[in-house]
Nucleic acid binder design. Structure first.
Lengths: 189, 189
DNA sequence: TTGCTTTTGTGACAAATGTCAAATGTATTG
DNA sequence: CAATACATTTGACATTTGTCACAAAAGCAA
């Protein structure tokens, strides 16, 4: 993947950015490619990077004993990372590739310095943070308010492609129910 | 409440801000005071403001039929608002005063313009967004991962003062259980 | 294909939680 | 203080969900 192509992807995702800001941003980017199963961020590790997922897919989860609880999934052209890594402390989630994937990696520290100087990029970071907070608010609402069946139907309607790309085991933990319960919900529908 | 006092509160909360940025910020602030029970943001309304809660307390909740589900509580010297109002669209939560409270109100639009010009304030907004996202991540983790008893104990340990300030009915909905279940959990402890 | 592993689905039962109704406790107001 | 409203607790029972065990289906490598 060469830099012009990367520029296109980013400016498509965030159209308000100026050419100059895009250039600054891209100057700090690295292209990476990893196979399915790779863990790009490990629970408990400090990891001062965040990523633009170019192709492929990932899942983020907490681990406890031998169980995983999925927090989110991401696919082509999504920005990923964890709040904690943005703040510099260690992550409490693991991010693992669902399939072979390509990334653009940014060093958090570089970006922090850029924020100091470039308003355009500040706006992008604000946009991303608010987008992420909006996503979390929605998830929280679903977990507190909806029954497990409603949550499943809601996922099915809002992001049917996720059902094709992610195992039911992972989706069950994402929805906050056991595999078996999800299986029974699906049998009803 | 006069402006010098407000300046102190903000600079205590966000020590990195320069005098100049504080002044800009405060120039756009309004002092308000409302009685217990007032709803400063109503579900479904567009509400282009956010607030610094100076004294008192509030709860934020979704409403469905005749039930409320609490999302968060806030008290003295906390910043409050909703993502949706920051983005300009209508809110889907209600914010109601738990007691007589004093606020500093900021107009979202003003602040959006300030962000364009003042990097210091951009950083503050980024800080606030990340802080809020961190809070939501923690809540999500608790709801997906912990039993209701663990969630109650976690609240008791992390924010025991909330138990004094908020009704058990509201705390139950915040924890995602019925009043009765919370009552039984408390009987065990 | 065969054999092996992983994923998904089902049944039976136990545990947790919700719901409804009633009792008790606590504030508030005249 | 009494009277009333509101908040909390408790009991009985229905419903949901989790857990364990195992069966069926799908994916994968030799």
């Amino acid at each position: 993947m060469d830099k012009p192509e990367l520029k296109e992807i980013i400016s498509e995702l965030y159209p308000h950015m100026s050419e100059a800001s895009l250039d600054i941003f891209i100057a700090h980017a690295n292209y990476l490619r990893y196979p399915k199963g790779t863990k790009i961020i490990q629970e408990g590790q400090s990891h001062p990077f965040f990523y633009l997922l170019v192709t492929g897919g990932v899942k983020a989860y907490y681990q406890k004993d031998d169980k995983e609880v999925c927090l989110w999934f991401a696919f082509e052209h999504e920005m990923i990372g964890t709040i904690n890594t943005l703040e510099g402390s260690s992550s409490n989630e693991t991010i693992e590739l669902l399939e072979d994937s390509e990334f653009i990696q940014f060093k958090t520290e570089d970006i922090a310095q850029i924020i100091e100087k470039d308003l355009d990029i500040s706006r992008l970071i604000i946009l991303l943070s608010l987008e992420y907070a909006g996503f979390l608010e929605k998830r929280l609402y679903q977990l507190q308010f909806m029954t497990s069946k409603e949550r499943y139907l809601s996922l099915l309607e809002a992001e049917p492609e996720v059902l094709q790309k992610v195992s039911l085991t992972d989706i069950a933990s994402y929805l906050g129910v056991s595999r078996e319960t999800l299986s029974r919900i699906r049998a009803q529908v």
